[in-house]
């Protein structure tokens, strides 16, 4: 009996050794992920047999692994954005309260410029399920700012985030930038005034107050330019036309000393000296 057992053990060792040798000599070529079209949410709900959370976890892990494979796979393997976002859509439909899934869709999974367009419907659903979250609208705004240069959409979401309870002030600078870049001076001024009011007395408070005043002037000039365009059926060529047409008494002084001018390229009033 002992001899037979020993013989069996040696045969087994031989098999293990052969397996090692085969695997090291004849390495499997690196293949692309097998990406099957995920079934509909209804089909997945059937398949889950009431373990929707478990199935959501498995699909989420699959999406994470696909996204993470970018770090180690050769460049000829591309990421499949529609597929990974289809997976995330199923995850959030199986478990609508899976907060990290929404967050990941707008954060870690964004790897291409147009990914935010695929992530948007998922994050919008997240906004409905988590109305108090500032992170979800923040990531929507940030991604539209960074990847799409869509300042109007970015500022809309960043404003939404800023109004949520417990929203940190650290992204207010980004929000101000997006508001400035699309010429939404009224909203920028309101935000700047809020920031100034919350600061203790000191040089930073003074700076914020000056910036708020500048934004107020920009809003005033922009409104006047709009009225001019309505009346004269053309845009202004410079700010002096606003004074000559009687819409303004004078061009206000910039509290930060740089002045204002009309930018023909951007089609709005901007701060700073005009460059020819």
């Amino acid at each position: 009996m002992k001899r037979v057992a020993l013989l069996a053990f040696f045969f087994y060792l031989a098999a293990v050794g052969l397996s090692y040798s085969l695997q090291t000599r004849f390495k499997n070529p690196l293949r692309d992920d097998l990406r099957l079209e995920p079934p509909t949410s209804q089909a997945l709900a059937y398949l889950s047999l009431d373990h929707r959370g478990f199935l959501a976890d498995i699909l989420f892990i699959r999406a994470i692994q696909h996204a993470g494979s970018l770090l180690w796979k050769p460049l000829n393997f591309s990421l499949d954005s529609p597929w990974k976002y289809a997976l995330m859509e199923r995850v959030t439909e199986l478990d609508p309260l899976y907060y990290n899934a929404y967050l990941f869709s707008g954060m870690g999974l964004i790897q291409d410029f147009d990914d935010i367009l695929l992530a948007r419907p998922i994050l919008e659903r997240g906004l409905k399920n988590f109305p108090e979250s500032w992170e979800l609208p923040f990531w929507l705004g940030y991604d539209f700012y960074l990847y799409q240069n869509d300042y109007a959409t970015a500022s809309r979401y960043l404003l939404m985030a800023a109004e949520k309870p417990n929203a940190p002030r650290s992204f207010f600078a980004l929000l101000l930038k997006t508001l400035n870049q699309q010429g939404a001076y009224h909203q920028a001024q309101a935000l700047m005034s809020k920031m100034a009011a919350s600061q203790p007395a000191g040089s930073l408070k003074l700076l914020y107050e000056k910036k708020a005043l500048r934004l107020q002037h920009l809003a005033q000039l922009q409104d006047a330019a709009g009225k001019f365009a309505e009346r004269e059926k053309r845009k202004i060529n410079n700010l002096d036309e606003l004074v000559k047409s009687g819409l303004l008494e004078k061009i206000p002084d910039d509290p930060l000393g740089q002045g204002y001018h009309w930018s023909k390229d951007q089609g709005r009033v901007v701060a700073g000296k005009e460059t020819n």
Binding site: H51, G53, F54, A56, F60, I61, N100, F104
Partner: peptide
């Protein structure tokens, strides 16, 4: 499998554990 999740270790353990229990 919980180590493969981003930071949802507790959730994945509970979900997969309940499936295993069933």
């Amino acid at each position: 499998i919980s180590t493969l999740s981003l930071s949802d270790v507790a959730r994945v353990i509970q979900n997969s554990g309940m499936a295993g229990m069933a």
